[in-house]
Design a protein around this nucleic acid. Sequence first.
DNA 1: TGCCGGTGAGTGATCACTCACTCACCCGTG
DNA 2: CACGGGTGAGTGAGTGATCACTCACCGGCA
Lengths: 215, 215
Amino acid sequence: MRATVSASRPSNNGRQASLISAAAALFAAKGFKGTTTKEIAKAAGVSEALVFKYFPTKHALYAAILAEKAPLSELVGAIEEVARKRNDHRVFTLIASYRIRPGADPTMLRLLLFSALEGHELADMFFGKQHRVFYDYLASYIRTRIEEGAFRRMDPLLAARAFIGMVVHHRLLHEIFEVPMHCSHEETVAAYVDLFLNGLRRSKPQLSRRPSRGR
Amino acid sequence: MRATVSASRPSNNGRQASLISAAAALFAAKGFKGTTTKEIAKAAGVSEALVFKYFPTKHALYAAILAEKAPLSELVGAIEEVARKRNDHRVFTLIASYRIRPGADPTMLRLLLFSALEGHELADMFFGKQHRVFYDYLASYIRTRIEEGAFRRMDPLLAARAFIGMVVHHRLLHEIFEVPMHCSHEETVAAYVDLFLNGLRRSKPQLSRRPSRGR
DNA sequence: TGCCGGTGAGTGATCACTCACTCACCCGTG
DNA sequence: CACGGGTGAGTGAGTGATCACTCACCGGCA
Protein backbone atom coordinates (compact mmCIF):
# COMPACT_ATOMS: atom_id res chain seq x y z
CA MET A 1 0.00 0.00 0.00
CA ARG A 2 2.24 2.73 1.36
CA ALA A 3 5.32 3.52 -0.66
CA THR A 4 6.91 5.87 1.84
CA VAL A 5 9.62 3.50 3.01
CA SER A 6 11.43 3.25 -0.26
CA ALA A 7 14.79 1.61 0.06
CA SER A 8 15.29 0.50 3.64
CA ARG A 9 12.13 -1.60 3.91
CA PRO A 10 11.12 -2.98 0.51
CA SER A 11 7.44 -3.15 1.59
CA ASN A 12 5.23 -6.13 1.16
CA ASN A 13 4.69 -5.83 -2.59
CA GLY A 14 8.29 -5.19 -3.46
CA ARG A 15 9.46 -8.23 -1.55
CA GLN A 16 6.87 -10.40 -3.19
CA ALA A 17 7.89 -9.17 -6.64
CA SER A 18 11.58 -9.68 -6.02
CA LEU A 19 10.93 -13.18 -4.69
CA ILE A 20 8.85 -13.98 -7.75
CA SER A 21 11.46 -12.78 -10.20
CA ALA A 22 14.27 -14.56 -8.38
CA ALA A 23 12.27 -17.77 -8.23
CA ALA A 24 11.20 -17.51 -11.86
CA ALA A 25 14.79 -17.34 -13.01
CA LEU A 26 15.75 -20.35 -10.91
CA PHE A 27 12.71 -22.45 -11.81
CA ALA A 28 13.34 -21.70 -15.49
CA ALA A 29 16.96 -22.71 -15.18
CA LYS A 30 16.63 -25.85 -13.09
CA GLY A 31 12.99 -26.84 -12.92
CA PHE A 32 10.70 -26.99 -9.93
CA LYS A 33 12.24 -30.03 -8.32
CA GLY A 34 15.72 -28.88 -9.19
CA THR A 35 15.37 -25.60 -7.31
CA THR A 36 15.55 -25.39 -3.52
CA THR A 37 13.83 -22.79 -1.40
CA LYS A 38 17.17 -21.92 0.12
CA GLU A 39 18.53 -20.97 -3.30
CA ILE A 40 15.51 -18.80 -3.98
CA ALA A 41 15.97 -16.99 -0.69
CA LYS A 42 19.64 -16.41 -1.34
CA ALA A 43 18.97 -15.12 -4.85
CA ALA A 44 16.41 -12.68 -3.45
CA GLY A 45 18.77 -11.67 -0.67
CA VAL A 46 16.59 -12.76 2.24
CA SER A 47 16.42 -15.63 4.68
CA GLU A 48 14.73 -18.84 3.74
CA ALA A 49 12.14 -18.35 6.47
CA LEU A 50 10.92 -15.13 4.89
CA VAL A 51 10.02 -16.92 1.69
CA PHE A 52 7.43 -18.84 3.66
CA LYS A 53 6.06 -15.67 5.19
CA TYR A 54 5.05 -14.49 1.73
CA PHE A 55 4.18 -17.82 0.12
CA PRO A 56 2.80 -20.65 2.23
CA THR A 57 4.45 -23.36 0.13
CA LYS A 58 6.95 -23.71 -2.68
CA HIS A 59 4.06 -24.63 -4.96
CA ALA A 60 2.22 -21.41 -4.14
CA LEU A 61 5.27 -19.43 -5.17
CA TYR A 62 5.39 -21.34 -8.42
CA ALA A 63 1.72 -20.69 -9.00
CA ALA A 64 2.21 -16.99 -8.38
CA ILE A 65 4.87 -16.91 -11.09
CA LEU A 66 2.71 -18.58 -13.69
CA ALA A 67 -0.30 -16.47 -12.77
CA GLU A 68 1.62 -13.23 -13.14
CA LYS A 69 3.12 -13.69 -16.55
CA ALA A 70 0.85 -12.70 -19.41
CA PRO A 71 3.02 -11.25 -22.13
CA LEU A 72 0.87 -11.78 -25.21
CA SER A 73 -1.61 -8.93 -25.16
CA GLU A 74 0.68 -6.31 -26.68
CA LEU A 75 1.39 -8.56 -29.62
CA VAL A 76 -2.27 -9.22 -30.30
CA GLY A 77 -2.92 -5.49 -30.26
CA ALA A 78 -0.21 -4.81 -32.81
CA ILE A 79 -1.41 -7.63 -35.03
CA GLU A 80 -5.02 -6.55 -35.08
CA GLU A 81 -4.10 -3.29 -36.72
CA VAL A 82 -2.20 -4.81 -39.65
CA ALA A 83 -4.72 -7.64 -39.82
CA ARG A 84 -7.45 -5.14 -40.61
CA LYS A 85 -5.35 -3.92 -43.51
CA ARG A 86 -5.00 -7.52 -44.77
CA ASN A 87 -1.22 -7.11 -44.76
CA ASP A 88 -0.43 -10.83 -44.52
CA HIS A 89 3.29 -10.43 -44.80
CA ARG A 90 3.37 -7.95 -41.96
CA VAL A 91 1.07 -10.04 -39.76
CA PHE A 92 3.29 -13.08 -39.85
CA THR A 93 6.50 -11.09 -39.70
CA LEU A 94 5.22 -9.45 -36.55
CA ILE A 95 4.44 -12.78 -34.94
CA ALA A 96 7.74 -14.36 -35.88
CA SER A 97 9.94 -11.41 -34.99
CA TYR A 98 8.16 -11.04 -31.67
CA ARG A 99 9.54 -14.46 -30.77
CA ILE A 100 12.73 -14.46 -32.77
CA ARG A 101 14.59 -11.34 -31.78
CA PRO A 102 18.09 -10.58 -30.58
CA GLY A 103 17.50 -10.23 -26.86
CA ALA A 104 14.76 -12.82 -26.52
CA ASP A 105 14.48 -14.12 -22.99
CA PRO A 106 14.31 -17.91 -22.81
CA THR A 107 12.89 -17.79 -19.28
CA MET A 108 9.23 -18.03 -20.20
CA LEU A 109 9.80 -20.74 -22.78
CA ARG A 110 11.77 -22.82 -20.32
CA LEU A 111 9.20 -22.24 -17.59
CA LEU A 112 6.43 -23.31 -19.93
CA LEU A 113 8.24 -26.47 -21.00
CA PHE A 114 9.19 -27.40 -17.46
CA SER A 115 5.62 -26.88 -16.32
CA ALA A 116 4.25 -29.11 -19.03
CA LEU A 117 6.87 -31.81 -18.56
CA GLU A 118 6.68 -31.85 -14.79
CA GLY A 119 2.93 -31.96 -15.09
CA HIS A 120 1.90 -29.13 -12.82
CA GLU A 121 -1.79 -28.59 -13.02
CA LEU A 122 -1.02 -24.90 -13.47
CA ALA A 123 0.68 -25.57 -16.74
CA ASP A 124 -2.68 -26.26 -18.30
CA MET A 125 -3.94 -22.92 -17.14
CA PHE A 126 -0.78 -21.20 -18.28
CA PHE A 127 -0.94 -22.72 -21.72
CA GLY A 128 -4.69 -22.78 -22.08
CA LYS A 129 -5.30 -19.14 -21.22
CA GLN A 130 -2.28 -17.65 -22.90
CA HIS A 131 -1.43 -19.68 -25.93
CA ARG A 132 -4.52 -21.54 -27.04
CA VAL A 133 -6.38 -18.29 -27.55
CA PHE A 134 -3.54 -17.06 -29.70
CA TYR A 135 -3.63 -20.15 -31.90
CA ASP A 136 -7.35 -19.70 -32.28
CA TYR A 137 -6.99 -16.03 -33.09
CA LEU A 138 -4.39 -16.73 -35.75
CA ALA A 139 -6.45 -19.59 -37.16
CA SER A 140 -9.47 -17.35 -37.48
CA TYR A 141 -7.41 -14.80 -39.40
CA ILE A 142 -6.20 -17.50 -41.76
CA ARG A 143 -9.74 -18.79 -42.19
CA THR A 144 -10.91 -15.31 -43.12
CA ARG A 145 -8.16 -14.94 -45.70
CA ILE A 146 -8.99 -18.33 -47.17
CA GLU A 147 -12.61 -17.34 -47.52
CA GLU A 148 -11.54 -14.09 -49.12
CA GLY A 149 -9.61 -16.12 -51.66
CA ALA A 150 -6.20 -14.86 -50.62
CA PHE A 151 -4.99 -18.25 -49.37
CA ARG A 152 -5.63 -21.68 -50.75
CA ARG A 153 -7.98 -24.00 -48.93
CA MET A 154 -6.57 -25.87 -45.96
CA ASP A 155 -7.33 -26.41 -42.29
CA PRO A 156 -6.76 -23.01 -40.70
CA LEU A 157 -5.80 -24.37 -37.29
CA LEU A 158 -3.22 -26.70 -38.79
CA ALA A 159 -1.82 -23.79 -40.77
CA ALA A 160 -1.60 -21.64 -37.66
CA ARG A 161 0.15 -24.42 -35.78
CA ALA A 162 2.51 -25.02 -38.67
CA PHE A 163 3.67 -21.41 -38.60
CA ILE A 164 3.95 -21.20 -34.83
CA GLY A 165 5.70 -24.55 -35.04
CA MET A 166 8.47 -23.17 -37.25
CA VAL A 167 8.99 -20.27 -34.90
CA VAL A 168 8.79 -22.18 -31.63
CA HIS A 169 11.03 -24.92 -32.98
CA HIS A 170 13.57 -22.33 -33.95
CA ARG A 171 13.55 -20.97 -30.40
CA LEU A 172 13.75 -24.52 -29.05
CA LEU A 173 16.89 -25.23 -31.05
CA HIS A 174 18.44 -21.87 -30.35
CA GLU A 175 17.52 -21.21 -26.72
CA ILE A 176 17.15 -24.68 -25.23
CA PHE A 177 19.45 -26.88 -27.29
CA GLU A 178 21.89 -24.04 -27.85
CA VAL A 179 22.26 -24.73 -31.54
CA PRO A 180 24.02 -21.69 -32.98
CA MET A 181 22.14 -19.56 -35.48
CA HIS A 182 23.77 -19.31 -38.84
CA CYS A 183 21.58 -16.48 -40.15
CA SER A 184 20.64 -13.14 -38.67
CA HIS A 185 17.34 -12.84 -36.87
CA GLU A 186 15.86 -10.81 -39.71
CA GLU A 187 16.92 -13.29 -42.37
CA THR A 188 15.52 -16.15 -40.36
CA VAL A 189 12.18 -14.47 -39.82
CA ALA A 190 11.98 -13.49 -43.48
CA ALA A 191 12.76 -17.03 -44.61
CA TYR A 192 10.05 -18.57 -42.44
CA VAL A 193 7.44 -15.98 -43.41
CA ASP A 194 8.21 -16.34 -47.11
CA LEU A 195 8.11 -20.11 -46.94
CA PHE A 196 4.83 -20.10 -45.08
CA LEU A 197 3.03 -17.48 -47.16
CA ASN A 198 4.25 -19.09 -50.37
CA GLY A 199 2.89 -22.37 -49.07
CA LEU A 200 -0.49 -20.82 -48.45
CA ARG A 201 -0.65 -19.14 -51.83
CA ARG A 202 -3.19 -20.49 -54.23
CA SER A 203 -1.52 -22.51 -56.89
CA LYS A 204 -2.82 -22.73 -60.42
CA PRO A 205 -6.18 -24.54 -60.60
CA GLN A 206 -4.82 -27.72 -59.19
CA LEU A 207 -2.42 -29.54 -61.47
CA SER A 208 -1.14 -32.90 -60.44
CA ARG A 209 0.60 -32.54 -57.11
CA ARG A 210 3.11 -35.31 -57.72
CA PRO A 211 6.24 -34.34 -59.60
CA SER A 212 5.19 -36.57 -62.50
CA ARG A 213 7.85 -39.05 -61.54
CA GLY A 214 5.41 -41.87 -60.99
CA ARG A 215 7.40 -45.05 -60.82
CA MET B 1 29.34 -65.75 -21.04
CA ARG B 2 27.40 -68.80 -19.99
CA ALA B 3 23.68 -68.83 -20.73
CA THR B 4 22.85 -71.98 -18.84
CA VAL B 5 20.80 -70.31 -16.13
CA SER B 6 17.95 -69.13 -18.26
CA ALA B 7 14.92 -67.99 -16.33
CA SER B 8 15.70 -68.19 -12.67
CA ARG B 9 18.60 -65.76 -12.83
CA PRO B 10 17.91 -62.91 -15.28
CA SER B 11 21.66 -62.71 -15.94
CA ASN B 12 23.65 -59.57 -15.97
CA ASN B 13 22.43 -58.21 -19.28
CA GLY B 14 18.77 -58.86 -18.69
CA ARG B 15 18.80 -57.06 -15.37
CA GLN B 16 20.62 -54.12 -16.85
CA ALA B 17 18.12 -53.88 -19.68
CA SER B 18 15.11 -54.10 -17.42
CA LEU B 19 16.57 -51.45 -15.13
CA ILE B 20 17.21 -49.20 -18.11
CA SER B 21 13.71 -49.53 -19.48
CA ALA B 22 12.11 -49.02 -16.09
CA ALA B 23 14.26 -45.98 -15.43
CA ALA B 24 13.67 -44.55 -18.91
CA ALA B 25 9.92 -44.59 -18.39
CA LEU B 26 10.22 -42.91 -15.02
CA PHE B 27 12.77 -40.29 -16.10
CA ALA B 28 10.60 -39.47 -19.10
CA ALA B 29 7.54 -39.10 -16.93
CA LYS B 30 9.00 -37.15 -14.03
CA GLY B 31 12.42 -35.93 -14.96
CA PHE B 32 15.79 -36.82 -13.48
CA LYS B 33 15.36 -34.94 -10.24
CA GLY B 34 11.75 -35.99 -9.97
CA THR B 35 12.56 -39.69 -10.01
CA THR B 36 13.98 -41.51 -7.00
CA THR B 37 16.21 -44.53 -7.13
CA LYS B 38 13.76 -46.34 -4.89
CA GLU B 39 11.00 -45.88 -7.47
CA ILE B 40 13.24 -47.21 -10.20
CA ALA B 41 14.07 -50.28 -8.16
CA LYS B 42 10.43 -50.93 -7.39
CA ALA B 43 9.45 -50.53 -11.05
CA ALA B 44 12.13 -53.03 -12.04
CA GLY B 45 11.11 -55.40 -9.24
CA VAL B 46 14.43 -55.39 -7.39
CA SER B 47 15.86 -53.84 -4.28
CA GLU B 48 17.27 -50.36 -4.35
CA ALA B 49 20.71 -51.68 -3.47
CA LEU B 50 20.86 -53.75 -6.61
CA VAL B 51 20.44 -50.68 -8.77
CA PHE B 52 23.78 -49.50 -7.46
CA LYS B 53 25.42 -52.84 -8.19
CA TYR B 54 24.73 -52.31 -11.88
CA PHE B 55 25.12 -48.54 -12.11
CA PRO B 56 27.50 -46.75 -9.78
CA THR B 57 25.36 -43.61 -9.60
CA LYS B 58 21.95 -42.40 -10.65
CA HIS B 59 23.66 -40.28 -13.31
CA ALA B 60 25.38 -43.32 -14.79
CA LEU B 61 22.02 -45.02 -15.17
CA TYR B 62 20.71 -41.93 -16.91
CA ALA B 63 23.70 -41.87 -19.20
CA ALA B 64 23.20 -45.51 -20.08
CA ILE B 65 19.65 -44.73 -21.18
CA LEU B 66 20.65 -41.89 -23.45
CA ALA B 67 23.55 -43.86 -24.88
CA GLU B 68 21.36 -46.80 -25.79
CA LYS B 69 18.60 -45.06 -27.68
CA ALA B 70 19.31 -44.46 -31.35
CA PRO B 71 16.04 -44.76 -33.23
CA LEU B 72 16.77 -42.78 -36.36
CA SER B 73 18.73 -45.10 -38.61
CA GLU B 74 15.79 -47.01 -40.02
CA LEU B 75 14.14 -43.79 -41.09
CA VAL B 76 17.25 -42.55 -42.87
CA GLY B 77 17.47 -45.82 -44.74
CA ALA B 78 13.89 -45.59 -45.95
CA ILE B 79 14.33 -41.99 -46.98
CA GLU B 80 17.46 -42.56 -48.99
CA GLU B 81 15.63 -44.84 -51.33
CA VAL B 82 12.86 -42.41 -52.22
CA ALA B 83 15.34 -39.54 -52.17
CA ARG B 84 17.23 -41.16 -55.04
CA LYS B 85 14.00 -41.18 -57.01
CA ARG B 86 13.51 -37.48 -56.29
CA ASN B 87 10.07 -38.22 -54.94
CA ASP B 88 9.83 -35.10 -52.79
CA HIS B 89 6.30 -35.70 -51.64
CA ARG B 90 7.16 -39.15 -50.39
CA VAL B 91 10.38 -38.01 -48.69
CA PHE B 92 8.62 -35.48 -46.53
CA THR B 93 5.59 -37.65 -45.94
CA LEU B 94 7.90 -40.36 -44.66
CA ILE B 95 9.60 -38.01 -42.25
CA ALA B 96 6.38 -36.52 -40.94
CA SER B 97 4.48 -39.77 -40.61
CA TYR B 98 7.43 -41.36 -38.85
CA ARG B 99 6.91 -38.83 -36.08
CA ILE B 100 3.18 -38.29 -36.34
CA ARG B 101 1.61 -41.71 -36.13
CA PRO B 102 -1.11 -43.27 -34.04
CA GLY B 103 0.93 -45.15 -31.48
CA ALA B 104 3.82 -42.72 -31.23
CA ASP B 105 5.67 -43.08 -27.95
CA PRO B 106 6.28 -39.76 -26.21
CA THR B 107 9.03 -41.25 -24.07
CA MET B 108 11.95 -40.26 -26.22
CA LEU B 109 10.63 -36.77 -26.86
CA ARG B 110 10.08 -36.19 -23.16
CA LEU B 111 13.49 -37.62 -22.33
CA LEU B 112 15.12 -35.37 -24.89
CA LEU B 113 13.36 -32.27 -23.61
CA PHE B 114 14.08 -33.08 -19.98
CA SER B 115 17.72 -33.66 -20.79
CA ALA B 116 18.04 -30.34 -22.56
CA LEU B 117 16.15 -28.40 -19.91
CA GLU B 118 17.91 -29.98 -16.97
CA GLY B 119 21.18 -29.37 -18.72
CA HIS B 120 22.78 -32.78 -18.56
CA GLU B 121 25.99 -32.77 -20.46
CA LEU B 122 24.78 -35.95 -22.15
CA ALA B 123 21.90 -34.11 -23.75
CA ASP B 124 24.34 -32.48 -26.12
CA MET B 125 25.64 -35.85 -27.18
CA PHE B 126 22.13 -37.22 -27.46
CA PHE B 127 20.97 -34.37 -29.62
CA GLY B 128 24.20 -33.77 -31.47
CA LYS B 129 24.76 -37.34 -32.60
CA GLN B 130 21.18 -38.28 -33.35
CA HIS B 131 19.35 -35.21 -34.51
CA ARG B 132 21.85 -32.74 -35.85
CA VAL B 133 23.01 -35.22 -38.48
CA PHE B 134 19.41 -35.66 -39.54
CA TYR B 135 18.90 -31.93 -39.98
CA ASP B 136 22.05 -31.79 -42.03
CA TYR B 137 21.01 -34.75 -44.12
CA LEU B 138 17.63 -33.23 -44.85
CA ALA B 139 19.19 -29.85 -45.59
CA SER B 140 21.56 -31.40 -48.08
CA TYR B 141 18.65 -33.06 -49.88
CA ILE B 142 16.84 -29.73 -50.05
CA ARG B 143 19.98 -28.03 -51.31
CA THR B 144 20.31 -30.61 -54.06
CA ARG B 145 16.71 -30.12 -55.13
CA ILE B 146 17.20 -26.35 -55.17
CA GLU B 147 20.22 -26.72 -57.40
CA GLU B 148 18.26 -29.01 -59.65
CA GLY B 149 15.65 -26.30 -59.98
CA ALA B 150 12.88 -28.23 -58.29
CA PHE B 151 12.66 -25.89 -55.32
CA ARG B 152 13.00 -22.15 -55.17
CA ARG B 153 16.11 -20.64 -53.67
CA MET B 154 16.25 -20.41 -49.91
CA ASP B 155 18.53 -21.42 -47.07
CA PRO B 156 18.33 -25.23 -47.04
CA LEU B 157 19.02 -25.59 -43.33
CA LEU B 158 16.31 -23.12 -42.44
CA ALA B 159 13.93 -24.98 -44.70
CA ALA B 160 14.79 -28.30 -43.07
CA ARG B 161 14.29 -26.82 -39.63
CA ALA B 162 11.02 -25.26 -40.69
CA PHE B 163 9.63 -28.62 -41.73
CA ILE B 164 10.90 -30.47 -38.69
CA GLY B 165 9.58 -27.56 -36.68
CA MET B 166 6.03 -28.13 -37.88
CA VAL B 167 6.25 -31.80 -37.06
CA VAL B 168 7.97 -31.50 -33.70
CA HIS B 169 5.69 -28.70 -32.64
CA HIS B 170 2.72 -30.85 -33.49
CA ARG B 171 4.07 -33.59 -31.25
CA LEU B 172 4.81 -31.05 -28.55
CA LEU B 173 1.22 -29.86 -28.52
CA HIS B 174 -0.22 -33.33 -28.77
CA GLU B 175 2.06 -35.40 -26.56
CA ILE B 176 3.36 -32.91 -24.01
CA PHE B 177 0.64 -30.28 -23.73
CA GLU B 178 -2.08 -32.82 -24.41
CA VAL B 179 -3.87 -30.64 -26.90
CA PRO B 180 -6.37 -32.90 -28.65
CA MET B 181 -5.92 -33.52 -32.35
CA HIS B 182 -8.84 -32.43 -34.46
CA CYS B 183 -7.70 -34.17 -37.65
CA SER B 184 -6.56 -37.71 -38.31
CA HIS B 185 -2.85 -38.43 -38.40
CA GLU B 186 -2.90 -38.84 -42.15
CA GLU B 187 -4.72 -35.58 -42.76
CA THR B 188 -2.33 -33.75 -40.48
CA VAL B 189 0.74 -35.15 -42.18
CA ALA B 190 -0.70 -34.41 -45.62
CA ALA B 191 -1.52 -30.83 -44.65
CA TYR B 192 1.98 -30.13 -43.38
CA VAL B 193 3.67 -31.76 -46.37
CA ASP B 194 1.50 -29.90 -48.86
CA LEU B 195 2.02 -26.60 -47.11
CA PHE B 196 5.77 -27.09 -46.99
CA LEU B 197 6.26 -28.33 -50.54
CA ASN B 198 4.00 -25.64 -51.89
CA GLY B 199 6.07 -23.12 -49.98
CA LEU B 200 9.24 -24.45 -51.57
CA ARG B 201 7.83 -24.46 -55.08
CA ARG B 202 9.22 -21.98 -57.48
CA SER B 203 6.71 -19.26 -58.10
CA LYS B 204 7.30 -17.59 -61.47
CA PRO B 205 10.23 -18.89 -63.52
CA GLN B 206 12.35 -16.81 -61.21
CA LEU B 207 14.62 -14.61 -63.28
CA SER B 208 16.33 -12.72 -60.50
CA ARG B 209 17.12 -15.35 -57.93
CA ARG B 210 17.36 -12.97 -55.02
CA PRO B 211 14.22 -11.05 -54.10
CA SER B 212 16.23 -7.88 -54.92
CA ARG B 213 16.19 -6.97 -51.29
CA GLY B 214 19.94 -6.37 -50.97
CA ARG B 215 20.54 -3.63 -48.47
C1' DT C 1 4.44 -0.52 24.39
C1' DG C 2 2.71 -3.08 20.49
C1' DC C 3 3.39 -4.27 15.93
C1' DC C 4 5.62 -6.20 12.07
C1' DG C 5 9.40 -7.31 8.81
C1' DG C 6 12.88 -10.34 9.32
C1' DT C 7 15.93 -14.28 11.05
C1' DG C 8 18.81 -18.51 13.20
C1' DA C 9 18.17 -22.67 14.58
C1' DG C 10 15.91 -26.09 14.25
C1' DT C 11 11.95 -30.26 12.60
C1' DG C 12 10.83 -34.83 10.53
C1' DA C 13 10.98 -36.73 6.00
C1' DT C 14 13.35 -38.14 2.16
C1' DC C 15 17.28 -38.26 -0.75
C1' DA C 16 21.38 -40.98 -3.03
C1' DC C 17 24.23 -44.23 -1.71
C1' DT C 18 26.78 -48.05 1.43
C1' DC C 19 27.55 -52.17 3.97
C1' DA C 20 27.35 -56.47 6.10
C1' DC C 21 25.06 -60.16 5.02
C1' DT C 22 22.11 -64.32 2.90
C1' DC C 23 21.23 -67.58 -0.42
C1' DA C 24 21.36 -70.38 -4.64
C1' DC C 25 24.22 -72.41 -7.56
C1' DC C 26 28.59 -74.46 -9.60
C1' DC C 27 32.33 -77.52 -9.58
C1' DG C 28 36.45 -80.13 -8.01
C1' DT C 29 37.53 -83.60 -4.90
C1' DG C 30 36.94 -88.03 -2.33
C1' DC D 1 27.07 -89.96 -4.94
C1' DA D 2 28.23 -86.68 -0.93
C1' DC D 3 30.29 -82.63 0.34
C1' DG D 4 32.19 -78.15 1.03
C1' DG D 5 34.27 -73.98 -0.40
C1' DG D 6 34.10 -70.25 -3.86
C1' DT D 7 31.20 -66.94 -6.42
C1' DG D 8 28.07 -63.60 -7.57
C1' DA D 9 23.18 -62.05 -7.54
C1' DG D 10 20.41 -59.96 -4.32
C1' DT D 11 18.84 -57.56 0.03
C1' DG D 12 17.50 -55.05 4.83
C1' DA D 13 19.04 -51.79 7.46
C1' DG D 14 21.24 -48.34 7.72
C1' DT D 15 24.49 -43.52 6.54
C1' DG D 16 25.05 -38.42 6.36
C1' DA D 17 23.22 -34.80 3.62
C1' DT D 18 19.60 -32.13 2.17
C1' DC D 19 14.82 -31.18 1.51
C1' DA D 20 10.45 -28.13 2.57
C1' DC D 21 8.80 -26.05 6.22
C1' DT D 22 8.26 -24.14 11.46
C1' DC D 23 8.93 -21.47 15.46
C1' DA D 24 10.67 -18.73 19.08
C1' DC D 25 12.73 -14.67 18.93
C1' DC D 26 14.88 -9.96 17.57
C1' DG D 27 14.98 -4.94 16.57
C1' DG D 28 13.33 -0.61 14.55
C1' DC D 29 9.44 2.34 14.29
C1' DA D 30 4.63 4.28 15.54
